[in-house]
Structures are given as C-alpha cells and as structure tokens.
C-alpha cells in the first residue's frame, strides 16, 4: 500500500501543537515512517506543494496571508484536521473578540491604528473552510494525537470527547477544588481529555481545552463562581481566556457586563 501523504502546517499561534508532535520523542520516528511527510514547516526545509491525504493545521487565521494559505492547503488535501485550540476557536488571541476593535489593539500595541499588516480578527479554521476533525488543547495532548493518527491509519474516524474535565477528575478521585477549596475551576464546562491535569496538581482548570461543544452550561458555571464571591471582571476574563469566540460565552459575558453596569460598576 502506498503511504498516505501528510503535511503539517501552522498559521498564527505559539507553535505548540507542532512542538507536541516533536515531543513524541519515543514514537516520532516510527510514527512518521508510516507516512510520506510532504511538509513540516517547524521541522523541515522540505516542502512539496502536492495533493495530500491529510493536512494538519495549527494556529488561528489572523491575517489575510494566513487565510490564503489555509485556502490553498484546503484545496489540495482530502482531510483537514484542526490541531489545537487556536485552529478551533482562536484560543487566547481571541480573548477580546468583539470586546476590543482591531484599531484599538493596533493602537495599544503598535501605537498606530492603521492596519498595515492585513490583520483579521483571530478565528478558527472552520470559520472559513470545511474542517474534517478538530483535536482540542492548548497544547494538544500527546495521547490524543497518537490515537487520532493511528485511528486514521486504520481508516477509522477518531473518537471525539464531549464530556467535561469533571468526569476525569472524579475517575482520578481528586478532591473537587471548587467545593473543597473554593477555587474558580472551569472543569465543569471544559472539554476533557487532559486527565484532569490541573486539579491533579491542586489547581483550578483554566479551560485550556476549550468549552465543550454544544454542551456548555456556562450560565451555571457563572452562578457558581458568583456564589463563591468572584467579581464580574474576574469571571468574564476567566471565561474568555479560551472561549472568546464561543457564542455562549460572548452572550454571557455581555449580559454580565450589562448587569454590572446596572448595579453601578464592578
């Protein structure tokens, strides 16, 4: 059988998802030997613009150049896999989506308002092109990418996780950091798959695997955190760290803002 042709690409982000693939130190050489690697920008000068069976793309679409590149990759791959939060929902760089205009960001950071870099509001790939599979995480988990790749090699579609971090926390029998320590944990609304890493370290989940698709009860999370005494600004920022582009979180944080304004400030 001919080896499947793959390409690993990145748009705007920290490069962490490609790095997690390189961090598969024990499996990397064997894993890549099952494929013909046509592009791997972070690791190779070899780059062949050819038809691909699978394109893995990390990073958010944040510039027109990035968008063109994404469209070009989509045009020559059979399966497009969004690798990591940036490629799914924009991740941390989307934290202020619809809160701060591009002109304002340009002024704060570059001191000018003119958008001479062709910057777009950061968004995930699916805002522009068809995405066949999304692998969440900031960064992605090694096990999950290994599992996804081996499933694809066998012609199966990888399992997607649709339950919260709390499930894994309970399976590990970790004490609940919200109940026991009143910590502002986002585990209840965050996609599992990390084996409840933060609660395992005695920390509250910051939501780095993104809100659970279609299953996020952010209103209850909000009420819970208000009950624990956290203020509006704190909660709004927390919900937006990794959820700035998620409709429910946008709606909720704007409602919060209105409520806080009505009550006379934060």
């Amino acid at each position: 059988m001919e080896k499947p042709k793959i390409g690993i690409f990145s748009l705007t982000g920290c490069g962490g998802d490609q790095l997690m693939i390189l961090n598969l130190e024990d499996e990397l050489l064997k894993l890549l030997s099952y494929f013909e690697v046509k592009s791997f920008q972070e690791a190779s000068s070899y780059d062949e613009k050819t038809e691909l069976d699978i394109a893995f793309v990390e990073g958010s679409v944040s510039t027109k150049t990035g968008l063109k590149r994404l469209e070009e990759i989509r045009g020559r791959c059979k399966l497009l896999i969004a690798l990591g939060d940036c490629a799914i929902g924009g991740c941390v760089q989307a934290m202020r989506s619809q809160q701060m205009s591009l002109a304002e960001k340009m002024r704060k950071v570059y001191g000018v308002e003119e958008n001479y870099y062709d910057v777009l509001e950061p968004k995930g790939l699916a805002a522009y092109v068809k995405v066949d599979l999304e692998i969440p995480g900031c960064p992605i988990e090694k096990n999950e990418i290994l599992h996804a790749i081996t499933s694809l090699l066998h012609g199966d579609s990888p399992e997607t996780i649709d339950y919260p971090v709390c499930v894994e926390c309970k399976l590990n029998e970790y004490p609940c950091v919200i109940i026991e320590k009143s910590m502002p944990c986002l585990g209840p609304i965050t996609t599992a798959g990390c084996n409840a890493r933060c609660p395992g370290l005695g920390l509250d989940c910051i939501g780095c695997r993104g809100p659970i698709k279609d299953e996020t009860n952010a209103t209850e999370e909000l009420n819970l955190l208000l009950e624990k005494g956290f203020d509006f600004q704190y909660i709004a920022n927390r919900l937006r760290f990794f959820g700035g582009n998620f409709d429910e979180i946008i709606k909720l944080t704007s409602e919060l803002k209105k409520k806080a304004e009505k009550e006379g400030g934060i």
Binding site: T65, G66, C91, R96, K105, V109, Y110, V119, P122, Q233
Partner: peptide, 27 residues
C-alpha cells in the same frame, strides 16, 4: 500574524497572568 498579548491581558487578575503570557511561545 500579530497576537496582541499586551492588549488583551489588561484587567486580568495577577493569579492567571503567567498562564496566559506563557502562551506567547511554546518552546
């Protein structure tokens, strides 16, 4: 693409600032 970390970190309480700012870079 620019990522505007300094702009969006404003108003964030100190406790999670390192968790966000470390995401400037993976390596």
């Amino acid at each position: 693409g620019p990522r505007f970390f300094e702009a969006f970190i404003e108003t964030v309480y100190y406790d999670k600032v390192p968790d966000i700012m470390r995401r400037i870079c993976a390596i």
